[in-house]
Design a protein around this nucleic acid. Structure first.
Length: 288
DNA sequence: CTAGGATCCTGTCAGC
DNA sequence: TGCTGACAGGATCCTA
């Protein structure tokens, strides 16, 4: 699910509501989804490390949240309590407009100004209590590479060299190579840079590496600007469902459609164990 | 050390 | 209708 742009969208959205708000109670509906003990304190700040969200609290604890494939965060302000006033982001689904909690609600965090629901169909995501001083020592956060707009072309290219025998798609999904890309933005970035997803990383030329890095930064910045997968784009004004992907995706879930550059039919295959979309004309195989 | 596959879990959809 | 397998916006663990 949520990749970096969606988590950034959540960070910005929740910051408006939660900075200074006090947690009054945490209701854990699925033990697997919450690691730690009951907490009651105020929110000092909200940070993001790649796809992980960190809520820093006044008692020197932090809540680290990773949504993985199907996690969602939905905040209902106490007043007025209507779905039109709701902030919802993460994996898009009808939960965004559903009455909550429901059978996919794993954790409910009560604040003095509203209720935050953590929904997660597949239970891969989690909320974990950490000492704030230990956040940057967390095993996941520690391994993260820099984000596309912070990593230098030299460093990115060097990181690629550690995975020369792996496909370029698998390599850029590795958060220790470049942080923030998931299955959508990997496909979109490779399309923008005109690189076949199955290309061996060792065959990526320096000029292609530079192009790919630029593409990743562009694609994700554009998505952050449009708000990731927020409810506003998921539910249209007439209350019918929309797909925010349609706004910018060139290849992701576009198999059978014409390539926006050359009209060749977009294909879907499997690379790195993941569904992979590309244009066979624009993104030629480079492997001998 | 890297590379690839299985795995965690629930739900939906296509194809018999 | 009911079953079955494939698949899903992620990351880790295990094996070779």
């Amino acid at each position: 699910m949520p990749e970096l742009p969606e988590v950034e969208t959540i960070k910005r959205g929740l910051s408006c509501f939660l900075i200074g708000a006090k947690i009054t109670k945490i209701d854990v509906k699925c033990p697997k989804s919450f690691i730690g003990t009951q907490i009651t304190s105020k929110v000092n700040s909200i940070r993001r490390f790649g796809k992980a969200l960190v809520i820093d609290l006044s008692d020197k604890n932090s809540l680290m949240i990773h949504l993985r494939m199907t996690g969602q965060l939905i905040f209902d302000p106490k007043s007025p309590n209507t779905t039109s006033n709701r902030f919802a982001a993460g994996h898009p689904s009808d939960n965004f407009i559903a009455s909550l909690p429901n059978n996919q609600t794993r954790v409910v965090i009560y604040f003095d100004n509203g209720i935050l629901y953590f929904n997660d169909q597949r239970k891969f995501g989690f909320i974990k209590v950490l000492k704030t001083t230990e956040v940057e020592n967390d095993s996941f956060i520690k391994k993260l590479a820099k984000e596309p707009w912070n990593i230098s072309p030299d460093e990115f290219y060097q990181n690629l060299q550690k995975h020369r025998n792996s496909s370029i798609k698998a390599t850029i999904l590795d958060q220790s190579v470049i942080c923030g890309l998931g299955n959508i933005y990997a496909d979109e970035s490779l399309f923008a840079a005109k690189i076949h997803p199955a290309t061996k990383t060792g065959r990526i030329a320096r000029s292609q590496s530079d192009l790919l890095l630029q593409a990743a930064a562009n694609v994700m910045e554009k998505s952050i600007t449009s708000g990731g997968s927020t409810m506003a784009t998921y539910v249209k004004p007439d209350s019918t469902k929309g797909d925010y992907l349609e706004k910018f995706a060139q290849v992701f879930r576009k198999e059978g459609a014409p390539c926006p550059r050359c009209q060749t039919t977009i294909l879907k295959t499997k690379v790195a164990g993941r569904g992979t979309h590309f244009c066979p004309q624009c993104q030629k195989e480079q492997n001998d």
